[in-house]
Design a binder for these strands. Structure first.
Lengths: 338, 338
DNA sequence: TTTGGCACTCGCAGATCCTGAGTGCCAAGT
DNA sequence: ACTTGGCACTCAGGATCTGCGAGTGCCAAA
């Protein structure tokens, strides 16, 4: 009972702070929520909550604001995910429907996510290692230069140019291409090293050197996960707070330009469900006063990559979480149609 | 003589303001520059310059700051472009050298440009309409679905999926692909509508519907310039000023998210040389207190697209212009090597 | 045309004061 | 064992005031 009320108080504080962005006091709390007790009682509870580290005072004689821990508790106890309004669902669907290719899907998704959540949005390109080869193409663009194109079933395209020491006769190139297609199409990218192990041996001794170069380049492209691409959008939303709140935008923008940081944020998502990292939990210097909400999206049950948002710790978690989840679902659906 | 000194004063004011970011007064001016006259004289000149609209006072009893017009005059009279330091040149070269594909070149370029100029950098992907077709590929990904891949000689890749009403026999697909390659490879994208006019007629009546769909999609992809992609980097530099100066970052960030705005900025560059748009000249609401410096880059003498930076009007124009130009030159070189 | 002199303006920084929201604690009430 | 009204206390933020000094415009003399 007593515990119950305390949690109700914490919840009320978070809710009020999220909407007003101002420290919330005991009196305001009882007025805005029907807690059925007097301010003095609330004050006792607040003192307790402060001792436990869920809320804090910016200074004496100001109201309380939730700490990272406070938000964490609030988020963990978030009952069900709010379903989106039908209008919103339709808007999302329409927004994504006209995409012509993967780049287009990514760009539209990031814009959509930024717009719906009114936060900075991040969308990671589908990982190659989790995709399969839809097609591979080998083209001569000069006598000593080949162009290798990889098409993933997720729609991702990769290209590499390959310098070969000696010209490769047309027929040999055609053979190699055919052989490559047979060996590789339909295989998962992660299995390519094994699949291609003996590739070179089946090639004419004469064009072995070229084959070696091709295999090396292909494997390089297929496993290059370090360089995964991430699209960012809605950075203008950062400035919206910027002026008024203790969020210096510069460190945030700087963090968002660090590929490494982004990969960490997007990569660590737990499988299934939505991951919320609050304040310090992001473990990124510049993001210590922001929260990161991510989830995975996929294709035919396979999880391909992550998307999510970055916003101030005092965001509307309930709505944000459901929006992120909804967008992920729709992207999944769109990708399956492609 | 008198005119000469006035211009020297304007120049001095711009230079001082650019370094200190504080209104500059007559006394400080004579101290920092060897103008050989007294402050009182300078004051007269300043009054004249103010009448002509080159400088302004934020308030009575403060120094003067240059107006857009003042910067414009200063920039127009910028003698020669400063060459970069050899160290800088080498750094640029090294930075770009390791690129594996076009995406990589674009991303590296935007980072480089942001880093060198310490401003927000913009890089536009090579325009399709100004490129030629290096290769075209047509792949069946299901019985009623084709994948069309276009490779531009600039390294750009485009893909489209095509739904066909009836399955297309393998041989027919191969024929169409071969025919397409013969007709299209080496042609400029802008000539494709003419080149493909009679394509359908040379195709078996049986697979005409598919051919029609393919041609339509191909032309659609080839002429879709509205949707040109632009990479942005270094937005964190905006915040560097942000707090201290009358640049509200939000409108700038918002402007940078508008595809239309970006296209206008990048598109209007005059051929050859560097374009500088100062303040209001950008003709973009949110960018009225920023300047935009752009230039074109290309490949084998052909201008493909633009790159440039966005920064506060009080930037170091001399250095910025030469950096932008230098980066454009190196990108051009790198693209030619690919 | 330049220059020194001089009165004038006005933004800014610092100091001071005041108000009110919000607290913690205590003693009384249930 | 909680809850509650009362009360003294704290302190951030806004309002007001003041003095300083940078910088100006103008004028008369060189």
């Amino acid at each position: 009972m007593l515990e119950d009320r305390r949690l109700a108080v914490l919840r009320a504080i978070v809710e009020d702070y999220v909407t007003t962005h101002e420290p919330v006091g005991s009196k305001a709390l009882v007025e805005r929520h029907s807690l059925g007790v007097s301010p003095a009682t609330i004050r006792n509870d607040m003192a307790a909550l402060e001792d436990e580290g869920y809320i804090a005072q910016p200074h004496t004689s100001a109201g309380r604001i939730p700490t990272d821990l406070g938000y964490r508790h609030f988020v963990d106890r978030l009952s069900g995910i709010k379903p989106l309004a039908p209008g919103e669902r339709r808007a999302i669907e329409r927004f994504l429907a006209g995409s012509v290719d993967l780049d287009d899907v990514m760009v539209r998704t990031v814009r959509l996510l930024a717009q719906v959540t009114r936060q900075v949005a991040l969308v990671q390109y589908p990982s190659l290692t989790r995709s399969s080869v839809r097609h591979v193409e080998l083209i001569a663009i000069s006598t000593t230069r080949l162009l290798l194109i990889l098409v993933a079933d997720s729609g991702r395209l990769e290209q590499r140019t390959i310098d070969i020491s000696q010209p490769l006769p047309e027929q040999q190139l055609a053979d190699m291409r055919a052989r490559l297609i047979v060996d590789v199409v339909g295989q998962s990218f992660s299995s390519l090293p094994a699949v291609l192990e003996s590739f070179v041996e089946h090639i004419d001794a004469q064009s072995r050197p070229a084959a070696v170069a091709v295999v090396a380049t292909l494997l390089d492209a297929a496993t290059e996960d370090v360089d995964e691409r991430i699209v960012i959008g809605g950075t203008a939303h950062l400035a919206r707070y910027g002026e008024e709140f203790p969020i210096a935008i510069q460190p945030v923008l700087e963090a968002l330009e660090e590929q490494v940081v982004l990969m960490r944020l997007m990569g660590e998502s737990t499988m299934g469900g939505v991951t919320v990292r609050i304040g310090q939990e992001t473990e990124v210097e510049g993001l210590s006063s922001t929260s990161v909400v991510t989830t995975r999206y996929g294709r035919h049950g396979q999880e391909l990559a992550s998307l999510g948002i970055v916003g101030p710790t005092h965001m509307d978690y309930a709505n944000t979480i459901s929006s992120v989840q909804a967008v992920a679902q729709y992207v999944t659906r769109i990708l399956e149609e492609q």
